[in-house]
Deep mutational scan, measured.
Amino acid sequence: DEEIEKWIETLLKRNISLRVNGKDLEIGSEEFKEWVEKFIKEV
């Protein structure tokens, strides 16, 4: 979905790490990609 890709790009540009389930996810890491894929499937 384009919306999500733009959102991810924005996050990448800002180099933010997300806190997911109490863990810091490094943007661009494998864990982050897995989380994004799960997130996309749920939406």
Results as ranks from 00 to 15, higher is better:
Thr10Gln: 12
Glu34Cys: 10
Ser29His: 04
Gly22Cys: 13
Lys23Arg: 10
Thr10Ala: 11
Val20Arg: 00
Ile27Leu: 10
Leu25Pro: 02
Arg14Cys: 15
Ile8His: 00
Glu30Lys: 13
Glu37Tyr: 13
Leu11Tyr: 06
Glu42Phe: 14
Asn21Thr: 01
Phe32Ser: 01
Gly22Leu: 10
Leu11Lys: 01
Lys38Gln: 11
Ile4Cys: 15
Glu34Met: 14
Ile40Thr: 02
Lys13Asn: 14
Glu34Thr: 09
Trp35Ser: 00
Glu42Leu: 15
Thr10Trp: 15
Val36Tyr: 05
Asp24Tyr: 12
Gly28Arg: 04
Gly22Pro: 01
Ile8Lys: 02
Glu2Arg: 13
Ile16Ser: 06
Glu2Gly: 08
Leu12Glu: 07
Asp1Tyr: 14
Lys23Trp: 06
Ile16Gln: 12
Glu5His: 12
Trp7Gln: 00
Phe39Thr: 04
Phe32Pro: 00
Glu42Ser: 10
Ile27Met: 05
Trp35Asp: 00
Val43Glu: 04
Lys33Phe: 15
Lys41Glu: 05
Ser29Val: 07
Asp1Asn: 11
Glu34Asn: 12
Trp35Ala: 08
Arg14Glu: 15
Thr10Gly: 06
Lys38Met: 08
Glu2Ile: 10
Glu42Met: 15
Glu31His: 09
Arg14Thr: 15
Glu9Thr: 05
Glu5Ala: 15
Ser17Pro: 14
Leu11Asn: 01
Glu31Ala: 12
Trp35Glu: 02
Ile4Glu: 02
Arg19Met: 05
Ile8Ala: 03
Glu42Trp: 15
Leu11Phe: 14
Lys23Gly: 02
Arg19Thr: 10
Asn15Met: 13
Glu26Leu: 08
Glu31Asp: 06
Glu31Ser: 07
Asp1Lys: 14
Thr10Met: 15
Lys6Ala: 09
Lys33Val: 07
Glu30Phe: 09
Leu18Tyr: 01
Glu2Ser: 12
Gly22Phe: 04
Glu2Met: 11
Lys6Ile: 07
Ile8Gly: 01
Lys6Val: 05
Lys41Leu: 06
Thr10His: 14
Leu12Arg: 03
Ile16Arg: 00
Leu25Ile: 10
Leu11Ala: 03
Val36Thr: 02
Gly22His: 02
Glu31Arg: 07
Asp24Arg: 06
Lys38His: 08
Asn15Arg: 01
Asp24Glu: 12
Leu11Ser: 00
Lys33His: 12
Asp1His: 10
Leu11Glu: 05
Asn15His: 14
Gly28Pro: 07
Lys38Phe: 08
Trp7Gly: 00
Phe32Met: 03
Glu31Met: 13
Arg19Phe: 05
Asn15Tyr: 14
Ile40His: 02
Gly28Met: 08
Ile27Lys: 03
Val36Asn: 00
Asn21Pro: 03
Glu42Val: 08
Val43His: 09
Glu9Asp: 05
Leu12Ser: 05
Glu30Trp: 11
Glu42Gly: 09
Val36Cys: 15
Lys23Pro: 01
Glu3Ser: 11
Lys23Val: 09
Arg19His: 11
Val20Gly: 02
Ile8Trp: 10
Glu34Ile: 07
Arg19Leu: 12
Glu37Gln: 13
Val43Tyr: 14
Lys13Ile: 14
Ser29Phe: 08
Ser17Thr: 11
Trp35Pro: 00
Ser17Tyr: 04
Val43Leu: 14
Glu5Phe: 13
Glu3Ala: 13
Leu18Met: 03
Gly28Asp: 08
Ile40Lys: 07
Phe39Gly: 00
Phe39Asn: 02
Lys13Ser: 12
Leu11Ile: 12
Ser17Gln: 09
Thr10Phe: 14
Arg14Leu: 15
Glu30Cys: 12
Arg14Ser: 15
Ile27Pro: 11
Asp1Ile: 11
Ser29Lys: 07
Thr10Ile: 14
Val20Glu: 03
Gly28Thr: 08
Glu42Gln: 10
Ile40Asn: 00
Thr10Glu: 14
Lys41Arg: 11
Glu30His: 10
Glu26Tyr: 09
Ile16Val: 11
Lys41Ala: 07
Leu18Thr: 00
Val36Phe: 07
Glu37Ser: 14
Lys38Gly: 07
Leu12Trp: 04
Trp7Lys: 02
Glu42Ile: 13
Ile40Trp: 09
Glu30Gly: 08
Glu37Arg: 13
Thr10Val: 10
Arg19Trp: 07
Gly22Gln: 02
Phe32His: 01
Ser29Cys: 04
Glu2Gln: 13
Glu30Asp: 11
Glu5Asp: 13
Asn15Pro: 14
Val36Pro: 00
Asn21Lys: 06
Lys33Tyr: 13
Val20Leu: 11
Glu2His: 10
Gly28Gln: 03
Lys33Thr: 06
Phe39Ala: 04
Val36Leu: 13
Glu2Asn: 09
Trp7Pro: 00
Lys6Asn: 04
Thr10Cys: 15
Arg14Ile: 15
Glu42Asp: 06
Glu5Asn: 11
Gly28Ala: 06
Ile40Pro: 00
Val20Pro: 02
Thr10Lys: 10
Asp24Thr: 08
Val20Gln: 06
Phe39Pro: 00
Lys33Ile: 12
Glu3Met: 10
Leu11Pro: 00
Glu30Asn: 11
Ile8Glu: 01
Ile40Gln: 02
Phe32Ala: 02
Glu2Trp: 12
Gly28Phe: 11
Val36Asp: 00
Leu18Ser: 00
Arg14Tyr: 15
Lys6Tyr: 12
Glu5Val: 15
Leu18Arg: 00
Glu26Ile: 13
Trp7Ala: 02
Glu31Gln: 10
Glu9Asn: 04
Asn21Gly: 02
Ile27Gly: 03
Trp7Tyr: 05
Ser29Pro: 05
Glu2Cys: 15
Phe32Arg: 00
Asn21Ile: 02
Asp1Pro: 09
Ser29Arg: 04
Ile16Phe: 01
Lys41Val: 03
Thr10Tyr: 15
Lys41Trp: 04
Gly22Ala: 01
Lys23Met: 09
Lys38Val: 08
Trp7Arg: 01
Val20Asn: 01
Ser29Ile: 08
Leu11Arg: 00
Trp7Asn: 00
Lys33Asp: 03
Glu5Gly: 08
Lys13Arg: 06
Ser17Asn: 05
Glu3Gln: 10
Ile27His: 05
Lys23Ile: 12
Ile40Leu: 12
Arg14Val: 14
Phe39Leu: 12
Ser29Gly: 06
Asn21Cys: 05
Ile27Trp: 05
Glu9Ala: 09
Ser17Gly: 08
Glu2Val: 11
Lys13Tyr: 10
